[in-house]
């Protein structure tokens, strides 16, 4: 009697669960695939379009299939002078983007680590004051104080220089804040052991704190590089000299040629340039995903 009930119960649960779980899973995957396509398809279309000649694109709009102009378009976007700009080619803009991304990331990490080290590891009377002064900068993004910042840069004659391009962007304390959080989580006893082992402030920083922060530095670097590479408003204002244009800044020229509409712009090249502008940061984020996610979720909190 007991046996019979048991088998029956088992049989019913098995069939019902099997059915329900399967539909569940299919729905989950369908939603995720739809989401993934939503992210992928627009960019894929830009990529496909970048392989076509301007006439076709002008007539038919963006393309789903590939044309035969891929190499030509990228070659032109990278090496031809005066496509969307008057005097620079894609390589120059690529180099400038790299300088901005690297300069910003490295500058910010170095400045931030130094300041955070001073705040956390020294008995400084005004450490709290310094911290609040630095922390306040997190409140107001550059966009809010864009015009006066521009005035200050012009007044200092830093317009159209890499310094004027990069340094004002560093004037926000995300990295300092992030490293301060991290340093505070480093066990107290480590500095005590190190001091007994005869390490002074410089030795402790180089021998112990920097190696310990490796992952944090990597995570910060990825986020900051992408952030710097993707800057738009500030480079637009501060660089009028085309030889300092970044790729993202160059996008504005493309859009303007769309707006003019007087002559047919080279859409294929435009698409190619857009792809070139997004490729380095996308690759970095995809390849160093776990560091990137760690940096993002731990820095903003």
């Amino acid at each position: 009697m007991a046996d019979i009930t048991q088998t029956r119960v088992q049989a019913t649960t098995r069939t019902t669960t099997r059915k329900r779980i399967r539909w569940d899973h299919i729905a989950d995957h369908a939603i995720l695939i739809a989401g993934a396509l939503l992210m992928l398809v627009p960019v894929y279309m830009v990529f496909a379009t970048s392989s076509w000649d301007p006439i076709t694109i002008h007539r038919e709009g963006m393309q789903f299939g590939f044309g035969d102009r891929l190499a030509e378009n990228y070659d032109a976007a990278l090496f031809e002078y005066g496509g969307f700009t008057d005097s620079v080619n894609g390589m120059t803009m690529l180099a400038n983007s790299l300088i901005l991304g690297l300069g910003f990331a490295i500058g910010k990490i170095i400045v931030g680590m130094m300041a955070a080290y001073a705040i956390v590891y020294f008995r400084l009377k005004f450490a709290t004051l310094a911290f609040w002064m630095i922390f306040t900068t997190l409140l107001l993004p550059l966009e809010v104080r864009i015009l006066p910042s521009y005035e200050v840069i012009s007044w200092m004659n830093l317009g159209n220089t890499y310094t004027g391009l990069i340094v004002p962007l560093i004037a926000s304390a995300t990295a300092t804040f992030f490293f301060r959080q991290f340093f505070r989580s480093v066990p107290e006893e480590l500095i005590e052991a190190a001091r007994i082992d005869g390490a002074g402030p410089v030795k402790f920083f180089i021998d112990i704190l920097v190696p310990l922060s490796k992952t944090m530095i990597a995570a910060m670097f990825i986020i900051m590089f992408v952030f710097g590479w993707n800057q738009y408003l500030w480079p637009t204002l501060i660089t009028t000299d085309e030889s300092l244009f970044t790729l993202v800044r160059g996008i504005r020229q493309i859009v303007q040629s769309y707006a003019d509409g007087s002559e047919t712009p080279d859409y294929g090249q435009a698409a190619a340039l857009a792809i070139i502008a997004m490729t380095p940061p996308v690759l970095i984020v995809v390849f160093f995903q776990s560091w990137f996610v760690k940096g993002l979720t731990e820095s903003d909190k």
Binding site: V111, A118, I119, F122, L124, M133, V152, P201
Partner: peptide
């Protein structure tokens, strides 16, 4: 601040200087 923090004065100010200068100016 760590409880066994370093007692130096000049060095940490030097460390803070770049950050403070940048935020003051920009």
């Amino acid at each position: 601040m760590k409880r066994a923090a370093f007692g130096h004065i000049g060095f940490p100010i030097l460390l803070l200087l770049p950050q403070l200068a940048i935020i003051a100016i920009f």
